[in-house]
Design a protein around this nucleic acid. Sequence first.
DNA 1: ATAATATTTAGACATTTGCCTAAATATACA
DNA 2: TGTATATTTAGGCAAATGTCTAAATATTAT
Lengths: 89, 89
Amino acid sequence: MNILFKALNDGTRREILEMLKEQDMTAGDIADRFNITKPSISHHLDLLKQAELVTAVKEGQFIYYSLNTTVMDEVLKWVVQFTKTKKKS
Amino acid sequence: MNILFKALNDGTRREILEMLKEQDMTAGDIADRFNITKPSISHHLDLLKQAELVTAVKEGQFIYYSLNTTVMDEVLKWVVQFTKTKKKS
DNA sequence: ATAATATTTAGACATTTGCCTAAATATACA
DNA sequence: TGTATATTTAGGCAAATGTCTAAATATTAT
């Protein structure tokens, strides 16, 4: 849970997740969309990978990153407990 | 969104939210449940307040903190976009 | 084998974070 | 008025974070 919220606590990383929601992308393609150096993006991707929010598959000299939606279910479950607190009126 | 994830990115703060889900509490009562000094808890409460995850009401010399569930809906909305991506098979 | 491309690893640096102690503020009570 | 209680504000400090440049690794193409 901790590592998950930590991974989500950064705008760049959240944007990466939103990009990967649309399509799988290589590390380079992801980096090209930000005004941040490739090593920095690589580090962000590593954190997302540690949190298992993304998976990485090497294909030749490229590494394709994909979203792993199942982990989000955990976050969802945690958040939901605070929202479904409605009382009958 | 940023300040929200920032507020949630701490175990102590998430625990406070879970406590407040059960009942409103004073700053002191909250602090008593942790092995952290009152000033530190006060700081955590301030962050939660900034994120509007909690509200504070002063009653005499006490300050009662309550959960504000409506803000969680925003988080929920953000998270859900990643979970409802199931395809028909 | 050498060069080019894709990506990561390593190391440095400034900023942010979470914690602490000490002091300040505000209310209640004797 | 003076003292105890509840909470916050201020200032300091070590650890974590996000960024960068330079170097290392791996793959592809000449």
